[in-house]
Design a protein around this nucleic acid. Sequence first.
DNA 1: TCGCTTGTTGATGG
DNA 2: GCCATCAACAAGCG
Length: 250
Amino acid sequence: VAGFRRLAARHLHHLDGIEVVDGSVVRNAWPEDLDVALRDQDVRRVARRGKWLVVHAERASLLAHFGMTGSLVLAGPDAPLDRYHRAVLHGDADLRVRDVRRLAGLWLATDDAGIDEIIGPQGPDAARLTTGRLAAALRGRRGSIKAALMDQRIVAGLGNMLSDEVLWVARLHPGRDIATIVPREVACLHAAVRGVVARSARAGAIPRTPAWLASQRSVAEPTCPRCHGPLERSRIGGRTSLWCPHCQPR
DNA sequence: TCGCTTGTTGATGG
DNA sequence: GCCATCAACAAGCG
């Protein structure tokens, strides 16, 4: 989403209008109303809040959430639409919302309160996390650390893959009970979140280079990029976790 | 055909 | 009240 934000900030200084290709992508308005509310105005600011993209225009804001497979792509005006393009933001250039699985969505907000209401409760943003904020967010909680990292109300911006990456860097077992984590480990976890998120955001995606755990994600017999031992897969917090039993002991 | 997948939400049960 | 699990959403892939 950080990459999508950069793309929009660079190419979307003015909104001519929003062309909705697949009506189901607009979640809280009729496509015509979304277009009417946002057309023919300058873009004041493009912000990211956790996994949300917020385009602040003069009279209203457009919110986008990309689900698992959604993306924002730059396209020339004459580039053909494919079946996965759901909407086109017409401006200085065209930005298209593309999504294979249709879990991405667009929302219209007419003021700041509306934005907050749509996004709902969010924890501190992973990219601006501090050790103190992380400690506060985890305080008094039970359950696995991985489920907490993926919970947007606790820390905003981390999903399944980034959480695995962060825990691997911090050498913490994904199933580790929050109640047993000591301050030194919280500090280590915080450093891992900041480092992993900063490098991913800069790249515009989670790097799949050999030094990253993510490089082993879809490998049949994954091995640890650090100790080269075999990695384990298990289900934690309802999603598949990849972790190193040697580097991340329970 | 089955089981899996980078996200979120709501129901249900402990 | 908090937490875990599951189903649903949806479509592609091996």
